[in-house]
Amino acid sequence: MDTPVEPDGRITALGNQLIGIHLALREELEQLREELEQLREDADAWLEGRGARPRELRAHCLAFCSALTRHHTGEDGGAFPALARQHPELRPVIEELEHDHQTVTEILRAVEDLVADEAAVDPARLRAELEGLTALLESHFAYEEKRLVAALNALPAGAGDAESLLGTPGT
């Protein structure tokens, strides 16, 4: 099925694309959490000579952190200013979401620090950071979707595309 495109080439339904981006990020975070559990099991087996070296958790963490940062940076510099211009009543919502982005950034830095030396990863601390990140993102994504999807879908075509407004190509 072809994606509907406006005459100027903009893909329609930016709000729906936001939901797709959030779904993909949720799936990546869940995979990361599962990898952490698998890493613990694989590391025990590897140390006992019963298995292969554990998969590289660090690379997946850094890729996820980068994707989430790119998305939030895109929103902060693209979608949020566009929405604030078109819908001034959303400014308090946008400010709250930007505050969430700052908190998420702090957690991502902690995650990156924890996986900097993969051989010394503390699974308990990393698990705690990922659990906190998961809880915050679930709340953040749900609130953002509830408050912004309709407004994003109503943005004029000249406002931009998913990459310029949401930090990543739509899914």
Rank of each mutant, 00 (worst) to 15 (best):
L152I: 08
L108W: 00
A43E: 13
D42R: 15
V115R: 01
G20P: 04
E98W: 01
P169N: 13
E89P: 00
D2W: 13
R127L: 01
A128M: 04
A67F: 05
K146W: 08
A24D: 08
G49Q: 12
A45P: 00
D44S: 12
P81R: 14
E89H: 11
A157L: 09
T69C: 06
E144R: 14
R109A: 03
E144V: 14
V104E: 02
G51F: 03
L39N: 13
R58V: 05
Q86L: 14
R147D: 13
H140N: 05
E37K: 12
E138S: 06
I21R: 06
E35S: 14
R147A: 15
S139D: 12
E48N: 11
D161R: 09
N153F: 00
R33A: 04
A45I: 05
Q102K: 06
V115T: 02
R147V: 15
R85Q: 13
G51R: 12
R127V: 00
E131D: 08
L39I: 07
E48V: 03
S164G: 08
A59Y: 04
D42I: 06
A45S: 07
M1V: 15
T105M: 04
L133Q: 04
E144G: 11
E131F: 03
E106L: 10
L137Q: 09
R26F: 01
A150M: 10
E35D: 14
V121Y: 03
G77L: 04
